[in-house]
């Protein structure tokens, strides 16, 4: 399997990249780390006529903290996120999630922006962005747009990004005091895409959730910020409460069928994850026994 022929350009600035995208429109594909794009091209699942390789745009690389905001450039590689003390301090959920992205050799090339723009519903990072209240920053012919993560992911491999736009960075509010997080995914093998996963961010005060954001992935055509969290905030969490939350979760899920799992299995596993997440974040082993049905 060899990729179809294509023309190639390596822009030297964001402006330059945007010009190329404006000229070539949807015939062009942006090449970032290439870890999703290249397999698809090698398999000839897609055959873009024009590749815009943004790999040289150093301005899109890097992690900075300014005030309450952690900004991560789109070209920041998974390996860089994993090594970053800023991410470890201010968005440890993202660090934990990134450790589950594929394998070391892939993480050395794959980028945060590439993963988000690719928007695989089974991917870890889009769900993290939702849990972390990220803002996705894109640049296009009409300037910059700031899109809340919750609005960015619109379907399987679909985002609010237009073919003329480039994802340039994400902004995350730095983790608040007393915040805690939970990340887990059920994958058949280490590094595989998840059957179901959960990236959660919370604030726990005196055994209560004062805030809880549950970012589920591989449960539908896009990551889901579960409303079920609302059932668990500012109330004592009892097994009955958790069961209620699980029922709410079940209603808001729209899982897909694939070779790994039926929708019923995904619903079930999502509920198991919910129970494990709540039990872990509240340090309440009593909530873990048995999956709430």
């Amino acid at each position: 399997m060899k990729a179809s022929a294509f023309a190639y350009a390596r822009p030297t600035s964001v402006a330059n990249a945007l010009e190329l995208l404006a000229t070539h429109g949807d015939k062009a594909k942006v090449l970032s780390g290439g870890q999703s794009l290249m397999p698809a091209m090698n398999l000839r699942l897609i055959s873009p006529e024009f590749i815009v390789d943004i790999g040289e745009l150093a301005e899109l690389r890097g992690i900075v903290v300014k005030g309450d905001v952690l900004t991560i450039g789109a070209l920041t590689r998974h390996a860089d996120v994993l090594k970053s003390p800023e991410v470890a301090a201010h968005a440890p959920l993202l660090r934990d999630a990134t450790a589950h992205v594929a394998h070391p050799a892939i993480r050395n090339r794959g980028t945060l922006g590439g993963s988000l723009a690719h928007a695989d519903p089974a991917s870890e990072l889009p769900a993290c962005m939702m849990a972390l209240e990220a803002t996705i920053i894109v640049c296009g012919p009409r300037g910059e747009r700031r899109i809340p993560a919750q609005e960015f992911f619109t379907g399987i491999y679909e985002t609010g990004l237009s073919p003329q736009e480039l994802l340039v960075a994400v902004e995350l509010p730095v983790a608040r005091k007393r915040s805690s997080h939970f990340f887990h995914e059920f994958a058949r093998r280490h590094g595989d895409y998840a059957i179901v996963g959960l990236a959660a961010q919370s604030i726990v005060v005196d055994g209560y959730f004062t805030d809880l954001r549950l970012g589920f992935f591989a449960v539908g055509d896009r990551p889901l910020l579960a409303n079920a969290a609302g059932e668990l905030v500012n109330v004592p969490v009892t097994p009955e409460r958790l069961t209620k939350a699980a029922a709410v979760l079940s209603d808001e899920l729209d899982p897909q069928e694939d070779q790994q799992a039926t929708p019923a299995m995904r619903r079930h596993l999502a509920k198991v994850l919910l129970s494990r997440c709540v039990s872990t974040l509240l340090s309440r082993p009593d909530l873990r026994s048995g999956a709430p049905e």
Binding site: F186, R188, I195, Q260, A261, T262, A264, M265, R267, H268, L269, A291, E293
Partner: peptide
């Protein structure tokens, strides 16, 4: 023996 098969056998799904 996939998780799907085992969960089905356990009657969980």
């Amino acid at each position: 023996l996939t998780p799907q098969i085992i969960l089905t056998a356990l009657g969980r799904i």
